[in-house]
Design a protein around this nucleic acid. Structure first.
Lengths: 110, 110
DNA sequence: TCTAATACATAATTATCTTATGTATTAATC
DNA sequence: GATTAATACATAAGATAATTATGTATTAGA
């Protein structure tokens, strides 16, 4: 699972926004949703995903709920109120980033 | 000189496109132009800039011309033919990246 | 029965960037 | 005239976020 150099730094933004839009999700589900939304262009690696989810949880941005599906564990993540506000902030930041880069690269868009 | 986490991975794209648009430029001049184009949002650090320019030169993407301005050295960088084609590629890559991220983050744009 | 997909997790390595440091010239301010 | 800020290059040390590799285990499909 590899992607462009440009994706670096976007992981947190992606996680927060996808969780905001789709509610309660577990790790593997997030990778599949992102793969789908990106038309196979963004393939999240577990080595990046899980540490990032754990960090966000430890910071109070995400909360978890562990569910047993038969004998298999599923850990559902969802945004805390703090997480919801951070999600907005991160998306705004990204939009601003696009605008700035569009100016620097002289792309004809916002 | 610090910026957002999102800038990671954009340096090469920025350097190539700015050099494509503005022709022959020296390092310090590039930092100023990018600062200006980005309205002070992107402040390139020398620690990232110079190693990156050197690498691109060693790869045949950029060529240099050293000029003495009085007693001060100026090293002008410009794109080689290979560099021009890489610049296009990098910009296309970035536009595609924006499109993909817009889908994932559900932004109402391309 | 074996393989692929699902589902979690962490350690080792790599790459890119920031921060820090260094040298030196030129312009501006005190 | 002296000090500071801006110009102009360069590299080394440290931080950080990602990839790659590895590990365990269940479930579905061939």
């Amino acid at each position: 699972m590899h992607s462009s150099e440009l994706l670096k730094g976007t992981l947190q933004t992606i996680l927060l926004k996808v969780l905001k839009d789709h509610g309660k999700m577990y790790g593997y589900e997030i990778t599949q949703r992102v793969k789908e939304l990106s038309e196979d262009r963004i393939l999240l690696t577990e080595g990046a995903l899980y540490p990032s989810l754990h960090k966000l949880e430890s910071e109070g941005i995400l909360k978890t709920e562990t569910v047993m599906m038969g004998k298999r564990v599923r850990k559902y993540y969802s945004l805390t109120p703090e997480g919801r506000s951070l999600a907005k902030e991160r998306v705004n930041e990204f939009v601003d980033f696009i605008k700035t880069m569009s100016n620097v690269l002289q792309l004809q868009m916002g």
